[in-house]
Write a protein that binds this DNA or RNA. Structure first.
Length: 494
RNA sequence: GCCCCCAUCGUCUAGAGGACCAGGACACAGGCCUUUCAAGCCUGGUACAGGGGUUCGAAUCCCCUUGGGGGCACCA
């Protein structure tokens, strides 16, 4: 089995592309076949220099390694279409010679005007009128002699229908007259997708084409091309599109707002930057349109490889289940070894806290804090806001937060002072702090929650924070006492 | 507008004629636990789009309707 992922370097690697790549990769790994990466860089007007690197980085990040393609090479190269122009021209000439293709001299302006006219007249079929298909030899010679720019078009059959099969769907025959002669080679000499794709898939001996559903309606063109070229037709499987979270519209078509008020992330790099784990993304991508089993959503790469099969893919387009990704990412974060999590957190913390990675890695508070926030994280970028209190000199917070619910400022102050006095003598360990502080609350006639709440604000400046004792231990006795003192001042000023 | 694809809880899905008064997960609601927030555990509600067939029997097959999606470029 030979499958391929054929992105065009016109933008960053998209979530939907990643899912397509994943299914291709899974199929190759499941069958022991080859996964090929081919770069379809035939549109020099939309070319984006960064995007090749982004595509490769994203695939690497997801763990989708390719057996042939950029960097690794392979026996069917080159793997950039821009380096295969001679091959396309050779076959275009053959089609021309066989009368299966023809040169078209129509200008883009004429084509545009034609479509506009057709739309105005509400014609059912919009597209090229095959004006140049019937040019006489003399006319052609004149046009060529005048140096008129031309494209090469494929001469689609004028009647009849084209049948093909798809592994996931029941396809009705398509009427050939529904199609207008497509361009094979553009006037700049570059091939169009349809042409380059067919040629490359053939010469790279691709056996299965797994690609997005948006290609389904162009299959008849491809089939006719394969036939004209006399080549064997590969197996098709058109993957369901991922719709935006609301379930309306193709995800790639628009950048919409997500469930909350946040921007909907559409590129793999954005998910990486937002603190999603590659393990979680891999798993998440796989459950959109495919299921490991009837009662499991969580599975490893190896498990997915073992079970994956094209025919099990659900053909129905579906909305992007973002809340499931959140949950799944949290799950994978929780399953990490704390040291591993800390290492992954470092770049995120460095960025937000404005400190060098090395300094953070050596910081004694981090190994204490990381296990405490591990089960509280949905994404890695949330960590900083949970533990920043341990990395800043002074806390900023509303003094009113120091007044415990049900207590007066004076009562809160008294409790805090007593706690601070006690803290000065206690060993800074979980066991050392726990019982004495609870007893103190009892002695004072305040609820444990009230006392701990006051301390939490004094220590972290927040009402929601990691567990109190761990936070104090991470801070250290000296800073803990200083912050209590500062909080007492604030309470007195109320 | 024309052509094509698709259709199970709010969402992602399991289901390939009887094992389904439809299973799992997320989300949601309630409860437990609890120093906040989480996590964890328990409980709960909600779905076969509608209508016709075929069949002893249909979520599963066929048709129509409706709904959603995609395509109709010198973009891929």
């Amino acid at each position: 089995m030979r499958v391929r992922m054929a992105p065009s370097p016109t933008g960053y690697f998209h979530l939907g592309s990643a899912r397509t790549a994943l299914f291709n990769w899974l199929y190759a790994r499941h069958t022991g076949g080859k996964f090929i990466l081919r770069i379809e860089d035939t549109d020099r007007t939309r070319y984006m220099p960064d995007s090749l690197q982004d595509i490769m980085d994203s695939l690497h990040w997801l763990g989708l390694d390719w057996d042939e393609g950029p960097v690794v090479g392979g026996p069917y190269g080159p793997y950039f279409q821009s380096e295969r122009l001679a091959l396309y021209h050779e076959w275009a000439e053959r089609l021309l010679a066989a009368g299966l293709a023809y040169r078209c001299y129509c200008t883009e302006a004429r084509l545009e005007a034609l479509r506009e006219e057709q739309r105005a007249r509400k014609e059912p079929i919009i597209g090229y009128d095959r004006h140049c298909r019937t040019l006489t030899a003399v006319q052609r010679a004149e046009l060529a002699a005048a140096g008129a720019a031309s494209v090469i078009r494929f001469a689609m059959p004028l009647e009849g229908e084209t049948c093909f099969t798809d592994l996931l769907r029941k396809i009705k025959p398509f009427d050939n007259n529904q199609y207008r002669d497509p361009i094979l080679v553009k006037s700049d000499g570059f091939p169009t997708y349809h042409f380059a794709n067919v040629i490359d898939d053939h010469f790279m001996e691709i056996t299965h084409i797994l690609r997005g559903d948006e290609w389904l309606s162009s299959v008849p063109l491809h089939v006719n091309l394969y036939n004209a070229l006399g080549w064997e037709i590969p197996v098709f499987a058109h993957l369901p599109l991922i719709l935006d979270p609301g379930g309306v519209g193709k995800l790639s078509k628009r950048k919409k707002k997500g469930e909350g008020d946040e921007d909907l992330l559409t590129y793999i790099r954005e998910y990486r930057e937002a603190g999603y784990l590659p393990e979680a993304m891999f798993n998440f991508l796989a459950i959109m349109g495919w299921a490991y089993s009837a009662d499991t959503d969580l599975f490893s790469r190896a498990q997915a490889i073992a079970r994956f099969d094209i025919v099990d893919i659900n053909p129905a387009a579906g909305a992007l289940p973002l809340s499931k990704l959140q949950w799944m990412n949290g799950h994978y974060i929780r399953s990490l070894a704390p040291a591993d999590l800390m290492e992954r957190l470092l770049p995120f913390l460095a960025k937000t806290l404005g400190q060098p990675v090395e300094a953070l890695r050596a910081h004694p508070a981090l190994p204490v804090l990381v296990p405490l926030i591990q089960e509280r994280l949905k994404t890695l970028d949330e960590a900083a806001s949970l533990i920043d209190f341990a990395f800043v000199e002074a806390l900023e917070y509303d003094p009113q937060m120091l007044v415990a619910k049900g207590l007066t400022p004076a009562q809160s102050l008294a409790a805090l002072t007593a706690a601070r006095t006690l803290l000065a003598t206690l060993p800074f360990t979980e066991e050392g702090l726990d019982a004495p502080l609870r007893n103190l609350a009892d002695q004072f006639g305040v609820k444990v929650g009230q006392l701990f709440g006051i301390l939490r604000v004094a220590i972290t400046g927040k009402q929601v924070a990691p567990p109190l004792f761990g936070s104090m231990i991470a801070l250290g006795r000296e800073k803990t006492l200083a912050r209590c003192l500062r909080a007492e001042e604030l309470l007195r000023s109320l």
